[in-house]
Computed example of a mutant assay.
Amino acid sequence: MEKTLLEMQKEVDDYISQFKEGYFSPLTMLARMTEEVGELAREVNHEYGEKPKKATEADNSIELELGDILFITICFANSLGIDLTEAHDKVMHKFNTRDKDRWTKKDTD
């Protein structure tokens, strides 16, 4: 079953709301997001770069690291009261207007 961004935001909020600590502060969220992006970079480097994993390193995956980034992004948005669907729509509008001629379009033949 596919979930909407709103459903994912509610699911994460329901999970976080069961803990007294609640959401982290914005600065801590940013630090966590930076950490997760670094872990994604490491996985991409292992998969597509020239740095193979050591035999002792954990078997993480790009998929899991992207999932971690999605989770922390949703936490960040929830903590600031941001509707990610609305944020997505605004970004797509920007790309479809300001950036509409920035890239070479494929032929539609």
Rank of each mutant, 00 (worst) to 15 (best):
M1Y: 09
E2R: 14
E2W: 13
K3L: 15
K3Y: 14
K3T: 15
K3N: 15
T4P: 13
T4D: 13
E7P: 13
M8K: 14
M8V: 14
M8L: 15
K10N: 15
K10Q: 15
K10V: 15
E11I: 15
E11C: 12
V12Q: 10
I16H: 09
F19C: 09
K20E: 15
K20D: 15
Y23H: 03
Y23N: 02
F24N: 06
F24T: 05
S25Q: 03
P26Q: 09
L27F: 11
T28S: 09
L30Y: 02
L30I: 08
L30S: 00
L30G: 00
A31D: 06
R32N: 02
R32I: 09
R32E: 00
M33H: 01
T34D: 01
T34H: 02
E35C: 07
E35T: 03
E35F: 06
G38N: 04
E39P: 01
E39C: 06
R42T: 10
R42F: 00
E43G: 02
V44S: 01
N45M: 08
E47M: 05
Y48R: 03
G49F: 06
G49L: 06
E50H: 03
E50F: 04
K51W: 00
K51V: 15
K51N: 12
P52F: 02
K53R: 10
K53G: 00
K54F: 02
K54A: 13
A55M: 06
A55P: 01
T56A: 10
T56N: 03
T56H: 09
A58E: 03
A58V: 06
D59E: 08
D59W: 01
D59N: 06
N60L: 06
N60Q: 09
S61K: 02
S61C: 01
I62A: 10
I62S: 00
E63S: 11
L64A: 12
E65P: 08
L66V: 11
L66Q: 04
L66N: 01
D68V: 06
D68N: 10
D68G: 07
I69C: 11
L70T: 03
I72C: 03
I72A: 02
I72G: 00
T73G: 11
T73S: 14
I74V: 13
C75V: 04
F76L: 12
F76S: 12
N78G: 13
S79V: 09
S79L: 07
L80E: 07
L80Q: 11
G81Y: 06
I82S: 12
L84I: 14
L84D: 08
T85I: 04
T85P: 05
T85R: 13
A87R: 10
A87H: 11
H88V: 02
D89F: 05
D89Y: 01
K90S: 12
M92K: 14
K94Q: 05
F95H: 10
N96L: 13
T97I: 06
T97N: 10
R98V: 09
D99G: 03
D99M: 11
D99K: 08
D99H: 12
K100P: 00
R102P: 00
W103K: 03
W103M: 03
K105E: 07
K106N: 07
K106Y: 11
K106R: 09
K106M: 12
D107C: 04
T108E: 11
D109G: 14
D109Q: 05
